[in-house]
């Protein structure tokens, strides 16, 4: 075990309605997951100042950091990009670690940013999954190895949701993740809803996937809900977790000795339908599972 952070329990991923939820019901979570990128406007490389923090959002993080343990879940590292590096962005993340003492840092196993042959930057508009090949594994390993010394906490990668599959891949996803953990020294953020979404759309057995995965590497779990659109189940974070996701969580709990927290995610645009009581019910259910497997 390379990580010294203690187990936290149940957390929530911050979104614009979370501050009011927490202020009215502070005991609903044990920790808060923060997407740092949403707290600032990024003027891009060369801009001065490069990062402008949003005053109203900063009020929340300043309030929360005195009350809850915080973990960071960034969306801008674009770990899988073939050609991309942004030292100023990494330095900004490192600065936030110094300020807010995040217990760990996670980002996604995907790419979002590309740079054309002419040097022009382009955003994919979504997190794009990667082909599971050795070449990609080497690229990710080198990038994570370069990143880890710059962020002072364990670094986690989140398994991706993928609406398309790539033919002729060299590795299975569990084998790819196990190799990445071994070679790069990263940990896993196991998003069970991403796994459920992929298993449902691409018709494979999620439990068999989990049996092949090195569950010792899992530090955080994400749970969420989704919706079916035109025959494709999407990771929309639109409401309660499907029963199958809770079952997967029950399955892994006895086999994840390094798990520190279960984070519930929902998108604030669904909050008018999926209200405070529903959020609380999801967190309570996660807590019941956590407590059953991690008695104090």
């Amino acid at each position: 075990m390379r990580d010294s952070a203690s187990a936290l329990g149940v957390g929530i991923l911050h979104n614009p309605v979370v501050p009011d939820l927490l202020k009215s019901d502070p005991g609903m979570v044990d920790y808060v997951s923060i997407m740092p990128d949403l707290f600032w406007a990024d003027g891009g490389p060369g801009a001065n100042p490069r990062f402008s923090e949003s005053e109203s959002w900063m009020e929340f993080i300043d309030w929360a950091c005195g009350r809850y343990p915080l973990v960071a879940h960034s969306i801008g590292l674009s770990l899988g990009s073939a050609v991309f590096s942004d030292d100023a962005y990494v330095e900004q993340l490192a600065d936030w670690h110094r300020r807010y003492r995040f217990l760990w840092h996670s980002d996604h196993l995907s790419f979002a940013q590309v740079r054309s042959a002419s040097g022009q930057e382009q955003h994919a508009g979504m997190a794009v999954p990667l082909p599971l090949d050795f070449e990609v594994l080497r690229l990710l390993t080198a990038r994570i190895q370069a990143l880890r010394p710059r962020l002072p906490t364990p670094f986690l990668v989140e398994n991706a949701v993928a609406y398309v599959t790539f033919s002729d891949e060299e590795m299975s996803e569990p084998a790819f993740l196990n190799s990445l953990v071994r070679d790069s020294g990263c940990w896993l953020l196991l998003d069970l809803h991403n796994l459920y979404t992929n298993a449902r759309n691409h018709k494979f057995d999620a439990s068999a996937f989990l049996r092949q995965l090195d569950l010792d590497a899992v530090v955080e779990v994400h749970v969420a809900g989704g919706t079916e659109e035109d025959g494709v189940y999407t990771d929309a974070h639109s409401g309660p977790c499907p029963e199958a996701v809770w079952s997967l969580l029950e399955e892994i709990m006895p086999c994840t000795p390094n798990l520190k927290g279960i984070t519930f995610e929902f998108h604030d645009s669904y909050f008018p339908i999926f209200g405070a009581k529903d959020v609380r019910a999801q967190l309570d259910r996660a807590r019941a599972i956590w407590s059953r497997h991690r008695p104090r």
């Binding site: 994919a124 508009g125 979504m126 794009v128 993928a162 609406y163 398309v164 599959t165 759309n201 659109e229 035109d230 025959g231 494709v232 999407t234």
Partner: peptide, 12 residues
């Protein structure tokens, strides 16, 4: 693949 339409919709 049907999922490519989902990707295009997500992008938009």
């Amino acid at each position: 693949q049907r999922g490519m339409s989902t990707n295009c919709s997500l992008y938009r």
